[in-house]
Amino acid sequence: MLAAIDWSAPWLAPWRARGAAVAHSVRSGMAQTAALNEAARAPVRFVPQSALPSGVAYEQYIFDTGRVPTRDGLHDFFNGLVWHALPLTKQRLNALQAAQIERTGVRPVRGPARDALTLFDENAALLQAPDALWQALVAKDWPRLFGDLRPLWREAQLLLFGHALMEKLVAPRKSMCAHVYRVLAAERSMDSIDAWLAQDLSADQLAAKPFAHLPVLGVPGWWAANENPAFYQDVSVFRPPRARDTGHEVTTQLVRRK
Rank of each mutant, 00 (worst) to 15 (best):
A4L: 13
A3S: 15
L158A: 04
A186I: 02
L197N: 10
A198T: 12
F77Q: 06
A198P: 12
R103V: 02
Y232Q: 00
Y58I: 09
F238M: 01
T104C: 07
Y232N: 00
V22Y: 10
G105T: 05
L206F: 12
S25D: 15
F231M: 00
V68R: 00
P108D: 12
K90C: 11
L197I: 12
L201M: 11
D6M: 02
I193K: 04
Q253N: 11
P143G: 09
L137K: 00
W11R: 08
V170Q: 02
F211M: 06
G29W: 00
A139R: 11
K209M: 11
L74R: 04
T70Q: 05
G111E: 11
V44H: 09
A186C: 04
G218K: 03
E187S: 13
L88D: 13
Q100N: 13
A39P: 08
L96Q: 04
R150E: 07
L36C: 03
P241G: 07
G221Y: 05
L165M: 11
T65A: 01
M176K: 12
A98W: 02
R144K: 14
L96V: 07
E59N: 06
L127Q: 01
R242N: 02
L149D: 00
S8I: 01
G105K: 05
A9P: 02
Q253V: 13
Q233H: 14
P172H: 05
P210V: 00
D141L: 02
H84Q: 15
L145R: 01
L12P: 05
R114M: 15
Q60M: 13
W196T: 08
R144F: 01
D121W: 02
R257L: 12
Q97L: 07
